[in-house]
Design a protein around this nucleic acid. Structure first.
Lengths: 152, 152
DNA sequence: ATACTGGTAATTAGATAAGTTACATGATTT
DNA sequence: AAATCATGTAACTTATCTAATTACCAGTAT
């Protein structure tokens, strides 16, 4: 896996806020147990999401609030807020400038790779947090249904 | 950067083989100086490219050969041969199965993320090694031109 | 007041990639 | 045939990054 779990964890966190709002205390401890990680990691994710303007947190109190509508939040925005600083495809090297290849490959690949990255981001831009929530709820309903029909 | 330099280095290596064929000894030492890395790293890249069927190498002799036409090799194929084992976007966690979110988010995101990955790969699939070579040669020619006009 | 809770720094641990050393083996040159 | 140069790999070291952990401060709520 090339992209860290911060991205998927952030989506998970935001989804949790929506689905469990009013049903559970939205503390970093409880969220951490859903994510199966430590509360500190959750708080770090929350700090980042707060700085990016997705949520409002209250120091000392677990009343975290989503500030925007799930249907208006794209996975791309979450991606950019969590991982988007560095490019997806790396061209780290200082290649040899005296070589025809080494002297020209960096801008060449940077350009081509950015096309690929933009394509991936375009897809993420069309998926909303609401889409994720809806899919999860559909899957959960299907699970329940499967359980019920088993009992009969 | 999320994807290692093996991908870009492999493209660099293959491009070098084409552009410098017959003009230089294609030894791992010489290629390494273009890539600005060590010969062992180059040999490791070559081993991988050989196993993937792109090149033929000869133990003891630097007569490495490209086995396929550059116009028929896409960057996607090189990507898959060098980095394609693991998905681009990670969902590493064993999330809590007793939670509506934790119990359903993994397949949900796996699905959405694969769409993004496929979009990126589709772009890479349309770029050929020949495209890279052509772009590099054009840039090199432009450099030479700029130098000449400066001298006048 | 006391017990939770968020905020954050500092440290540790684990994974991965790249560079390095070393050496075996094949090819080439003289 | 011997010496040289090449590839093929294994083993080790470094560097970097992520995540987990520990610890502590500060705010909230009962």
């Amino acid at each position: 896996m090339k992209v860290s779990t911060r991205f998927s964890d952030s989506i998970h966190l935001l989804t949790f806020l929506v689905i469990y709002k009013g049903k559970t205390t939205l503390s970093s401890n409880i969220i951490a147990s859903s994510l199966n990680t430590s509360p500190v990691v959750v708080r770090r994710l929350m700090s980042n999401l707060r700085d990016a303007g997705f949520i409002k947190t209250t120091h000392g109190s677990p009343d975290t609030e989503l500030l925007r509508e799930p249907k208006d939040i794209s996975l791309l925005e979450i991606y950019l807020a969590t991982e988007g600083k560095s490019p997806l495809f790396a061209i780290d090297h200082e290649t040899n400038p005296d070589c025809i290849v080494g002297g020209n490959i960096q801008p060449t690949l940077t350009d081509y790779f950015s096309h690929a990255e933009i394509a991936a981001e375009a897809v993420l831009g069309k998926i909303s947090l609401q889409d994720v929530i809806d899919t999860i709820l559909v899957k959960e309903a299907a699970k329940k249904q499967a359980e019920n029909s088993k009992e009969e």
